[in-house]
Design a protein around this nucleic acid. Structure first.
Lengths: 200, 200
DNA sequence: CTTAAAACATACTAACTAGTATTTTTTATA
DNA sequence: TATAAAAAATACTAGTTAGTATGTTTTAAG
């Protein structure tokens, strides 16, 4: 009984440290050796729990990264309340809540997308799954907003959802180039202009 | 006299092949060995022309990538004509003009930003320079549009410029996840909705 | 034609890479 | 408490990495 728990703990430890190192230094340039050094375990433990680095990468995406996006950007969209206000708050508060570290290193999902999505279909699929769920949540909220006469019925929810996701992921990258938040402030202003124009 | 030309040709050859390989496989995972194999030259030639891989990376950014962004996204903004129409055409035509290969591999600049901007200040600066010139061109065009009563004077040109750049770079990444253009069509629709709302 | 420098080639280093083979330690259970 | 399986450690392989040291070839200029 205790063994299973300990084993699961080890696997999670490797997963957590991997996520951190991938976020900090990139996936391809983080070695299994480096990961295992931070866990104070050895390669034997790694290959006991994961059959390859690729398998680990996929699990980091479908577990750690998905959780993060859900918590920060998807779950809030299912709240009750004015759809437009929820959009505005979710996007801008998320940006404002990031630590200096997170601003400097961008979006873990976007980093993965740009580093390895064009390399291997398995990564592509795992990442697409998250984006699609994000998009679905946005479309749901926009449609609700339309029903409740808060959002212009003539606009395409799909198009707005894609545009919102694109701009958010884009700014997470652009922000890496700067050492202050002015570009984020510009983005938030641009976003709120955009959202205001979705009114009926 | 001839020597200088040949030497310059070699340096450009290395630069061009590097750009292609960085675009295809990423910067950190493209080795100097691989680059020199595609040029049919050897390591001796490489380190004669470039003092390090980092120096090469910086030159790829400030030369190859800058040229590409200028040609595709900046120069067109300085055309005469309706500012809003120029924006719409420049962004959507650029997206539509990409080859399958370019759609799959995203934006070279955005790839660099997400791969190495948080690693080394020199890369950050070289990339920022391009983004700033792009932003300046957009702001110039938006201001001209305001003067010519084509664009709403109350909006912030800076904010719109940042929002446009973010969404464009974002969609270039998101598109990597898909095998068809529907997400690009959604983006273009979302963009034109957005641009229409910039009218006075 | 000689000479020196520039352009490039060859052969190396030391560190790192993903993954494997084998052994030791720990744990559950009979 | 004996035993087998799970968990983890150790030691290895074969390949790759950026960069260097030392050659050889080519070219320009006297």
């Amino acid at each position: 009984m205790e063994q299973k728990q300990k084993s699961e703990f080890t696997k999670q430890l490797i997963l957590n440290e991997s996520f951190k190192l991938f976020y900090k230094n990139g996936f391809k340039t983080t070695s299994v050796d480096k990961i295992m050094k931070t866990t104070n375990l050895t390669k034997g433990a790694f290959y006991h729990h994961y059959k390859s680095k690729k398998e680990l990468g996929l699990e980091v995406i479908s577990s750690k990264i998905q959780q993060r996006v859900y918590q920060g950007m998807i779950t809030p969209l299912y709240q009750d309340g004015n759809a437009l206000a929820i959009l505005k708050v979710t996007f801008s508060e998320r940006l404002k809540s990031f630590s200096q570290y997170d601003k400097q290193h961008g979006c873990p999902m976007n980093n993965f997308i740009n580093e390895i999505a064009d390399e291997e279909e398995a990564y592509q699929l795992a990442l697409k799954r998250i984006v699609e769920e994000w998009k679905a949540a946005l479309v749901y909220l926009l449609e609700r907003g339309k029903k409740e006469h808060v959002i212009n019925k003539t606009i395409s929810s799909n198009a707005v959802a894609v545009y919102l996701i694109s701009s958010f992921e884009g700014i997470r990258g652009i922000r890496k180039l700067y050492n202050d938040d002015s570009v984020l402030d510009d983005y938030i202003l641009g976003l709120s202009l955009y959202l205001n124009q979705l009114k009926p």
